[in-house]
């Protein structure tokens, strides 16, 4: 059965928290809804599912790639053109560390920027229901439910004090 989105718009955080409790009582799970806010609330403040992300893996991956490339470039250059400088070994760690540090940083930076965009799921031109009042401090509870449960969800939102309820057409 096709699913539709229902957005409850609440003036206070207390009403939104009450709505998420009632959604659970009505048989919806925490995976079915998301809480939309104009400012970040502490995780789990509305009893919602705490999302997981893998952002921290991105800089580590980028750093590992950058480090490897930098080591290959510095060691490869010196082995290919073995010039003794200042009586130091051909593969001298301190000067290699400078380029290796930069390579590691560049890899980490590029992958972090990619990671933030990817993990935020941005850009996302078709995002479903939204209301600009959320930007000004209202709380939105966006529920995804089967067609036949839209009315039940609407009722739960209104009984919990929603100022407005929007339905996906």
């Amino acid at each position: 059965m096709a699913s539709k989105q229902v957005l409850g718009i609440f003036k206070t955080a207390d009403d939104a928290a009450l709505a998420t409790d009632r959604l659970k009582e009505a048989g919806f799970s925490a995976q079915d809804y998301q809480v939309l806010t104009g400012a970040p609330y502490p995780e789990g403040a509305f009893g919602e599912e705490i999302p997981k992300h893998r952002l921290f893996a991105f800089p580590f991956f980028g750093a590992a790639v950058g480090f490897t490339v930098a080591i290959l470039v510095t060691a490869g250059t010196q082995i290919s053109y073995p010039l003794v400088t200042g009586g130091k070994p051909i593969l001298a760690i301190p000067p290699m560390a400078i380029i290796t540090y930069e390579g590691t940083m560049l890899g980490a930076i590029i992958m972090t920027i990619i990671g933030v965009i990817f993990e935020s799921r941005l850009p996302r031109p078709f995002t479903g229901l939204y209301d600009t009042r959320i930007t000004e401090g209202y709380i939105g509870v966006a529920l995804k439910c089967p067609d036949d449960r839209v009315q039940a969800a609407d009722l739960v939102f209104r009984q919990s004090g929603a100022e407005d309820v929007k339905h996906e057409e």
């Binding site: 806010t37 970040p40 919602e48 999302p51 992300h53 952002l55 933030v116 935020s120 941005l122 996302r124």
Partner: peptide
């Protein structure tokens, strides 16, 4: 910012980012 709606995931990634 076409897709920013301030959901839980976006806030979490924003802070970590």
């Amino acid at each position: 910012v076409p897709g920013w709606h301030g959901d839980d995931r976006q806030w979490k990634v924003l802070r970590a980012g």
